[in-house]
Structure formats: structure tokens, C-alpha cells
Design a protein around this nucleic acid. Structure first.
Length: 572
DNA sequence: GCCGTTTTCGGCCCGACTGTTTTCAGTCG
């Protein structure tokens, strides 16, 4: 059973327990378990009880429930909870400004158990009879219902980055020195963001007004002395925090999260007789302030080195920091080449020379040209004859152009049965072969996994491209046993790709970390189809950093000579 | 429900804003 399915079960249990007014710490335990399971790269159903129990936050009860889900495919506890409420009631919790207490009362006192029922009741003015609910709240709920219907959930992180950049530009206005920093899930580099959080250092309340007056604002959700929230016309919520300069470090830390990281950090503070909040670090007994102006200072007050935001997910980063074992994360400047790009020979929009020059201008030392293969007719894929002719042209261009090394490659389709789309003797002529799935996405897991394993076992395949095939918000990953794939890649010395296209980001962070842990080399590729696409590498880097990858784990941080030596080196 | 270099019981992160309150409950991050 997929980890995300199990995570959803625990998350629903948390919501339902909250509606029942259960012990908040029990609720938190289930939500923590949901986070942990969702962020684990390997299937938790494959772990032994002892391995499960060894994960902090997973205890006896949760481990037993994971086992029950693995064995029976369902969970009696969740079923019992769902008998107490209509299944549609959880939708009500997704409404802005509506929380568990309100939902529970709406259901108990008015029998409201769905968004539709709430909408009718609010429209008819039947809510204002309840204590604590007035006409204004009714209007807010109607608005929240409309927004809920319009919203498509979370936004891709690169889009949110653009929105945040534009907003920051607006806030700076005539003061280019104004310090505006994205925080929250955006700063941590999460692949999707539910909102855009910005932090401004200063004391001038005018910046809050500037924020709510931004032309892209649809409506103001709230505004006080230190914070304001707006809903943008794009449907994204944006939050601004204004903090005094002496507290910027503590505020950056606090608002970057994640929640799990912050809770652990505060716990550490309390253990050391300190209190940590968004204004600083204080002595518990005297209240004396000991840190807060900069983020490294805040971590130092807790006897920790600075922890990069991408690691702050409660996945062992504090323990690693405590023992001086934090990874030296890969960064964009470590990338020396790109191993996946297309030209007009298949479905790219720029020709060979233009792509080569653009790669050079993007600071790359080498670029592999990897067109589609013939079965992708829609993309003008190449057969063996065209592949070899194109390889000759690539090598000619390589000889002609200074400052960039071109590698002759292919993105070869993996056919339904796992065979490669081009003959092995043709592929063996090339410098690099990326193999990818582009068809028959609906195969069952066993069939799809065997298909990919066969490709990995081929002696001419160097890299598996976008290994799960997902398209964010459009297409789920195809059903592949990722652990088997990673195991096979490790055994055969085949690299797995982090594809930097904004709707792919595939491998995802959890899987890339698993690949690292199992000794599989990773490559970070643009999958460029145009000259500006090398910019996308920054998003692949974000995924890699969230996966704890260091330069040594990433093949295309090597020189071209070292890269060539590393390809197919484990084959016979 | 989880966890333990003081604990196997008794704790568990903290503050701002809103609406409906006249001192606060609920929600959010």
C-alpha cells in the first residue's frame, strides 16, 4: 500500500478525532504520523515492526495500525469514526475560518454535515442563532464556500516563487533596501505551496497598507499591527509578517518552519532552560533575551549549527546538526553539465547550435543532446539511422564550438514490455542513453516495475529519465515499486534523474533521498526544449537539497572526463 | 498517542487576529 494512502488515513483520523473533541495531543500524534509516513521514501508497509517503532513519532498503536492497513487494506478504527459523522463533513474543515469546534457544533446543533448544507443554512440566515455566530460570520462562511469551490488546492512552488518575487518588488517600492524574505514552505522548497509567506524587517506599519493595496489582491482576509493576510486574484493566499529588525533572525526561523522542525527546536530550547518564539531566544527564569537578530545566532543559542531551510522537515536534521553531521548540500554552482536536452531534431524549439550556446551561457561545461526515439512519433522521434546521423552532427558541433562539450545521446523510450525503442548496437554508439517511459502509463505495478527493471538491466542504459512519470496536479505517478527500481539501479550502476521541469520534479525529494541512501547516483537534468530552459535546473537543485544530496551524489557535478568514466562503469 | 541522562506517568510550542464576547473562544500559522 502506498505511503500517501496511509498518510491520508492518519490525517483523516486526526481530523475526525478533533471533531470529537479528543485529547489534542492524541490528535497531534496521528498528524505527526501522517507527516512521517508521507515523507518516508520506502514503503512503511515493507518495514518490520521493530523498524517502524524505531522511527521517532511512531509508537505501538500507530505501528499496529500500519500493520492492519498492510494486511487487510483497511482500518477498523477509521471505519468506526466515520460511522459517527457523514463522510462529507471533513470538507467543512477546508473552509477558511471554519475550524473543528465550529464544524462539530454545526453538525450537533443543526445537522450540517457538508459544504452544500452549510451554504444553504448560511444563505438562509440559520446560523446566527448559534452562540458566537453572527450575520458577519455567515457572510464570511459563504465567501469561504465560494473560494473553496474555486480553489484547486496547492500551487506549484516555482509559480509561488514568481508571485512572491512580484509582491516583494511591489513592497520595496521606492525603498530598494527594504528586507523582504519569503518564508514558509516556499523557503523550504516544498514542491507545492498552499500560500506565499513573506517576512519584512522593520517597524513602519505603512508596509502593511502597501501589502493590502497590491493590485493583485482580491480581498483582504485580515490586517493588524504585525501581520496581514490577503487572497490574490490567482487564488493564492499571501501572508505578510512585519517584525522589528532585532527579531528578524528568530522570525525567519519561526515562519520558515516546518511545524515539526519548530516543535522539536522549542522542545530543545525548553530542555536548555530557554524559550524560543518569533521574537527571540529567552532565558526561561530571568526572561533575559539571548538571541534573535540573525538566524545563525538563534541556532547557535540552541548549540546548533545553521540548518539549511530545505532540511527543516523534521527528518533527522536536528540530530544531524547536533552531531555535526549535516550534509554539505549541492548547489547550482556545483552543476557542471546537463544530460537531458532536446533540439528541433525532435520536439525542441531551438536548434543544436542555439541549445549548445545557451547551455554555455548558463555556465555549463557540457550538454548531452538526447532527442526522443522513434516510437514517440508525435515528438518526431528518431529511428536508428537518424540517431546515428544526428550523433555525427552533434560531434561536429562539439568540435566546432568552444567552451562547451557536447555529448551525443538519446532519450530512448522504454516500450510496454521493457524493451528499448532502438537497437542495442545503435545505442552503444552513443555517449549517453537516458531511458524513459512515455506510454502505457496505466499498467499494473508488477508489469510497470518489471518494465523499468528490464531497462535498468540493459547494458547500454545510463540514466532512467523522470522515473515515476508524474505531472504535478495533472497526472499521478505510474504504478512502480520505487524501492525495487532503486535497488536495481544500485545493483547495475544506473543513475536516476531528478527532472527539473516544474510540473515534473521527478524524482521527488523523498525518493531522491532513498536513492542517495541506497548508493544510487543521481543526475539533475533540465529536460530542456528551449534555450531558456537551463534556468529550470534551479528547481531540480531544490529537490536535491531537500533530499540531502551532496555534490558527490550527483553525477553531473563531475568534470566531463570523470562523468564519462562513471557511465556504464559497473557493466560488463 | 508518544516519549523518557531527573520521568513508564505526566507532560506535550507559542502568539496574533477576528468576531462576538464584556474577558474570550476559535482559528490560523
Amino acid at each position: 500500500m502506498d505511503n500517501l494512502v496511509i498518510a491520508r488515513v492518519f490525517s483523516e483520523i486526526g481530523d475526525l478525532l478533533e471533531l470529537k473533541g479528543e485529547n489534542p495531543f492524541k490528535i497531534r500524534a496521528y498528524r505527526t504520523a501522517a507527516d512521517i509516513v508521507g515523507q518516508t521514501g520506502e514503503r512503511v508497509t515493507d518495514l518490520t515492526d521493530a523498524e517502524l517503532r524505531a522511527i521517532p513519532g511512531i509508537g505501538k498503536t500507530v505501528a499496529t495500525k500500519i500493520r492492519e492497513l498492510a494486511d487487510t487494506g483497511q482500518l477498523a478504527f477509521l471505519k468506526e469514526l466515520l460511522e459517527e459523522f457523514p463522510p462529507t463533513i471533513l470538507d467543512l474543515l477546508r473552509l477558511q475560518g471554519v475550524g473543528p469546534k465550529t464544524v462539530a457544533r454545526l453538525y450537533r446543533e443543526l445537522g450540517i454535515g457538508s459544504v452544500d448544507a452549510l451554504e444553504s443554512a448560511a444563505a438562509e440566515g440559520r446560523l446566527r442563532g448559534l452562540r458566537g455566530l453572527g450575520a458577519k460570520k455567515e457572510q464570511l462562511m459563504l465567501r469561504a464556500v465560494a473560494e473553496y469551490r474555486r480553489r484547486e488546492g496547492r500551487f506549484p512552488m516555482p509559480d509561488v516563487q514568481d508571485i512572491a518575487d512580484a509582491l516583494a518588488e511591489h513592497l520595496r517600492g521606492t525603498d530598494p533596501d527594504l528586507q523582504v524574505t519569503p518564508v514558509g514552505s516556499l523557503r523550504r522548497g516544498c514542491e507545492t505551496c498552499g500560500d506565499a509567506d513573506l517576512l519584512v524587517a522593520g517597524t513602519d506599519l505603512a508596509v502593511l497598507e502597501r501589502f493590502t493595496a497590491y493590485p493583485g489582491v482580491d480581498r483582504v482576509l485580515g490586517r493588524g499591527e504585525t501581520k496581514a493576510s490577503v487572497l490574490l486574484t490567482s487564488g493564492l493566499q499571501a501572508d505578510l509578517r512585519l517584525v522589528p529588525p532585532e527579531s528578524v533572525g528568530a522570525a525567519l526561523q519561526y515562519f520558515t518552519g516546518s511545524k515539526a522542525h519548530n516543535i522539536a527546536l522549542r522542545d530543545r530550547a525548553v530542555q536548555r532552560g530557554l524559550k524560543l518564539n518569533e521574537y527571540g531566544v529567552y532565558q526561561l527564569d530571568t526572561g533575559e533575551r539571548v538571541a534573535g537578530a540573525t538566524e545563525p545566532e538563534v541556532y547557535a543559542a540552541l548549540a546548533l549549527p545553521f540548518i539549511p531551510p530545505e532540511l527543516r522537515e523534521g527528518r533527522g536534521e536536528i540530530a544531524a546538526a547536533d552531531t555535526d553531521a549535516l550534509p554539505h548540500l549541492v548547489s547550482r554552482s556545483d552543476l557542471r553539465g546537463d544530460l537531458h536536452a532536446h533540439t528541433t531534431e525532435s520536439d525542441g524549439r531551438a536548434d543544436l547550435d542555439a541549445m549548445a550556446i545557451a547551455a554555455r551561457e548558463a555556465g555549463l561545461e557540457y550538454l548531452a543532446i538526447t532527442e526522443h526515439s522513434k516510437s514517440l512519433a508525435m515528438a518526431n522521434g528518431l529511428d536508428e539511422r537518424r540517431t546515428l546521423a544526428h550523433a555525427r552532427r552533434i560531434r561536429e558541433a562539439d568540435a566546432r564550438l568552444d567552451g562547451i562539450t557536447l555529448l551525443a545521446g538519446i532519450e530512448c523510450d522504454i516500450l510496454r514490455d521493457g524493451a528499448l525503442d532502438l537497437a542495442e548496437d545503435c545505442l552503444a554508439e552513443l555517449d549517453i542513453v537516458v531511458a524513459s517511459v512515455h506510454s502505457a502509463f496505466s499498467q499494473e505495478e508488477r508489469e510497470m516495475t518489471d518494465r523499468l527493471l528490464r531497462a535498468v538491466e540493459s547494458p547500454v542504459v545510463d540514466v532512467i529519465g523522470h522515473p515515476t512519470g508524474r505531472l504535478l496536479r495533472r497526472r499521478d505517478p505510474y504504478r512502480v515499486n520505487i524501492e525495487e527500481l532503486i535497488g536495481a539501479a544500485a545493483a547495475h550502476g544506473v543513475a536516476l534523474e531528478i527532472n527539473s521541469q516544474v510540473d515534473r520534479l521527478d524524482l521527488c525529494d523523498a525518493h531522491a533521498r532513498l536513492a542517495r541512501d541506497r548508493g544510487v547516483p543521481v543526475v539533475i537534468n533540465s529536460d530542456a526544449h528551449a534555450t531558456n530552459a537551463f534556468e529550470l535546473l534551479r528547481w531540480g537543485i531544490v529537490v536535491a537539497r531537500r533530499a540531502w544530496l551532496e555534490p558527490e551524489h550527483v553525477l553531473n557535478t563531475r568534470s566531463v572526463a570523470a562523468l564519462r568514466a562513471g557511465l556504464r562503469c559497473n557493466r560488463n
